[in-house]
Simulated scan of single mutants.
Amino acid sequence: MDYKDYYAVLGVPKTASADEIKAAYRKLVRKYHPDVSKEADADARTKELNEAYGVLGDPEKRAAYDELGSAPYRQAGEGGFRPPPDWGAGFESFGGADSDFFKDLFAHVGGGRRRGFQMRGDDSYAVIEIALQDAYAGAGRTISLRVPEADASGRVITRERTLNVTIPKGVTEGQQLRLAGQGQPGSGGAAAGDLYLEIRFAEDRRYRVEGRDVYQTVPVAPWEAALGAGIEVATPSGRVTVAVPADSQGGRKLRLKGRGIPGTASAPAGDLYLLLEIALPPANTPRARALYEQMARELGFNPRLDPRTGL
Rank of each mutant, 00 (worst) to 15 (best):
A44Y: 03
P84T: 09
G154S: 05
V214T: 07
D98A: 14
L177D: 04
W223C: 06
P307A: 06
Q249R: 13
D204M: 05
G250S: 13
M1L: 12
P85F: 10
E203F: 04
L163F: 08
I199H: 03
F91I: 05
D213N: 15
R239D: 13
Q176I: 00
R178I: 02
P307D: 06
D123W: 04
R255C: 06
P262R: 08
L56Y: 07
L195S: 01
G11N: 10
G251I: 01
Y196H: 12
G211F: 07
R30M: 12
V233A: 07
T285G: 09
R208W: 00
G270Q: 12
H33R: 08
L179Y: 01
V240Q: 10
T172W: 01
A63N: 08
A191F: 00
V220T: 08
E173D: 11
K27Q: 14
G96Y: 01
D35W: 06
N50M: 15
T162Y: 00
K38G: 11
G80Q: 13
V218C: 03
S144T: 13
P219L: 14
V165W: 00
P286S: 14
D123T: 02
D151T: 01
L177M: 08
E129A: 11
A42D: 07
R115P: 00
R289Y: 03
Q294W: 13
I130T: 04
P13A: 15
A64Y: 10
L49M: 14
A234S: 13
S248P: 04
Y207R: 00
Q176F: 02
